[in-house]
């Protein structure tokens, strides 16, 4: 009975050590999510496919030259003015929209707030924006231009969504957020998002420089 048993090792501080390590890993782990500007490329086209004819008034041409200067519809412009110009063009609503699936005539844009200028676009679903770049254009400039154009679509969609009675005054951003928060299960919101998207479809197209 005289022999003492080996004293138990105190494991109380073990937790502290483990916690320290845990916190280290928690802090150093950068769960950084890659984010970027989404682009959908068009499929490779056959050589001799008829290109759809688009009236010139429905095309908004943005050219960037190799010195990163901007030419919008033939006029020089700074990038700060681009969003406004694009909104003006898309939201013009000067004519009838695209023909329906069954060939019925398109309707005029009743939600557009533009000037209904004869020389500008007919309808948001016809208004195409073309980005023309040269090989020497910098990637940064190209992304900024694309960003500005995407911004103008977003602004228009926000306005349209707020004005729609079904959304209850929610903006397009809010709709997207609500949809995401419902784990993509909220079907009503999904329908609304589709609707707003349909009002202002993104018709962005690139003209790539030739080799």
């Amino acid at each position: 009975m005289a022999r003492k048993e080996t004293p138990e090792i105190d494991a109380g501080s073990m937790a502290d050590i483990a916690f320290l390590l845990l916190i280290f890993f928690l802090v150093t782990t950068t769960m950084d999510v890659d984010s970027g500007i989404p682009v959908k490329l068009t499929e490779k086209q056959e050589e001799n496919v008829d290109k759809p004819i688009v009236k010139e008034r429905n095309v908004f041409e943005v050219s960037i030259n190799s010195r990163d200067e901007l030419l919008v519809e033939g006029d020089e412009m700074s990038i700060e003015e681009l969003t406004e110009a694009a909104i003006k063009f898309i939201d013009n609503g000067g004519g009838l929209g695209k023909k329906g699936d069954n060939g019925e005539d398109g309707t005029s844009c009743d939600y557009c707030a533009g000037e209904k200028d004869e020389a500008s676009s007919d309808h948001p679903n016809k208004a195409v924006i073309i980005i023309e770049s040269s090989r020497g254009t910098s990637f940064g400039m190209y992304v900024s231009v694309r960003n500005e154009l995407l911004k103008s679509y977003r602004i228009l969609r926000n306005i349209a969504s707020t004005n729609l009675p079904e959304t209850g005054g929610r903006s397009y951003d809010q709709l997207l957020l609500d949809y995401k928060n419902s784990n993509k299960k909220d079907e009503d919101t999904e329908v609304l998002i589709k609707k707003v998207k349909g009002m202002y479809p993104q018709l962005l197209s690139d003209v790539d420089p030739q080799k």
């Binding site: 500007i37 989404p38 490779k44 090989r135 020497g136 254009t137 790539d208």
Partner: peptide
Amino acid sequence: KADIKTSIGTIVDIKEALVEVNALKLSFST
């Protein structure tokens, strides 16, 4: 993931190569 000073020519080459293999979803990391 391209540097802002990259020329669009290089990006266009990449885009063409991607279309060739039908990889159409693209994202410019920003």
